[in-house]
Design a protein around this nucleic acid. Sequence first.
DNA 1: CGCGGCTTTGATGTTCATCAAGTAAAGTGG
DNA 2: CCACTTTACTTGATGAACATCAAAGCCGCG
Lengths: 231, 231
Amino acid sequence: MMKGSVKCSCEQCQLKTLFFSHVTVNELTDICEIKEEKTYSKGELIIKEGDRIDEFLYMKEGLVKLSKNSPHEKEQILSFSKPFDFVSLLSIFSADYYRYSVTAVEDSVVCLLDLNVVKNHAQQNAMFTMDLMTRISEATDKIIIENLEIRRKNLKGRVAHVLLYFSNYIYERDEFELPVSRREIAEYIGMTTENVIRSLSEFRKDKIIKIFGKDILIADKKRLKNISEFG
Amino acid sequence: MMKGSVKCSCEQCQLKTLFFSHVTVNELTDICEIKEEKTYSKGELIIKEGDRIDEFLYMKEGLVKLSKNSPHEKEQILSFSKPFDFVSLLSIFSADYYRYSVTAVEDSVVCLLDLNVVKNHAQQNAMFTMDLMTRISEATDKIIIENLEIRRKNLKGRVAHVLLYFSNYIYERDEFELPVSRREIAEYIGMTTENVIRSLSEFRKDKIIKIFGKDILIADKKRLKNISEFG
DNA sequence: CGCGGCTTTGATGTTCATCAAGTAAAGTGG
DNA sequence: CCACTTTACTTGATGAACATCAAAGCCGCG
């Protein structure tokens, strides 16, 4: 795991082609010059809801959660995002202040660019702007669809869905370490912590999963999928 | 209420400044030439989920709902949109097929442009693309925030919220005709039709609102707001 | 005029939140 | 490093919120 600030060369950045495929060499140098790479450890706040937006950022490594604080100090989690899913925030071009917080749920590496510089490039380079728009649209669409999906399901369906989400989409393995607490799962699916735990315990009793603290092993994916679809 | 296909001049379109403020006269003429204006009456389907995206569209008048069909023929309503809120669909640049349906809930007027023409302009005119991106971001952000808001509330809070939404945001009046059925409200807030009706009846009994079929009069906005915030 | 969809109310049952209480794990200061 | 505090996890009991089922009236439309 990378730690601390690293001087990386943009030329060999894996994400270059995705975000900057339609950027000239001069522009890329420009951007690279002002770029700052930051490492956040698990649990650290990357962006705080309400802060002024003055940087454009994209993830290179890790996993983050997007969340919003409602009046009564209850947190709602919008989505979990890994690199490629998360290109700065949805609202960088439409708002002055962040509407959501972003927190690392795994050690994460983020690149930061001055927003004005990015905006200047965007104003001059239409292909770049289109690329950006495409990525932002994709990320946003995913959030909306995922939220609708979850809302259709009942408690156990939602818990099953989250397990499959981590297994299939984030880790691509049947055994993995849950990067989030039971409470965070609850905040994501809109249920209580107790009931998330109860669902997990039931899955365990039914031998659908095995639990060792944060480690989860999905033993019967077919049944889990069934629960997720039915619920 | 306008009916049928109308030959309108783009020069005097109210929305011109919003979408096309950074478009040259030549480009505008180009766009205007290929533009098609369509009128949909209440209930008509404008876009069907799954259809190929080959047009860019924006609303001039009316009110529409965005919805998604889940497997078990249950519809979920994402949002209601009036002009300015709704610039084509979120996914025009990131997907080939519509992920949501759009239906007129009031008589509506929509302008259609060939998507390729718009994309061509977008590729050449960065300011135009930025304007577009800003509008799409705003529209999407609104949907996400509204959905989180609703999710925080209980049944009565959600119903109160919807009433205030129509009153304050859509109609800007305390008395209005509900443009949607009780079932559609239920599909929007994720509750059953019966419970939406029960909540409305209770509000009526408590003299918070008056109901005459589809006509709603908000008699005690303060209490309604209270219910919406508490729930 | 009769059919189907929308609305309404009541009765019943299920699902889920809340409360309570205890264990385990993890961070904190002496 | 150990006592201490806090936070995460777990289970059970209870009640509230909400869905489901049922039945009837209403309205528009062919």
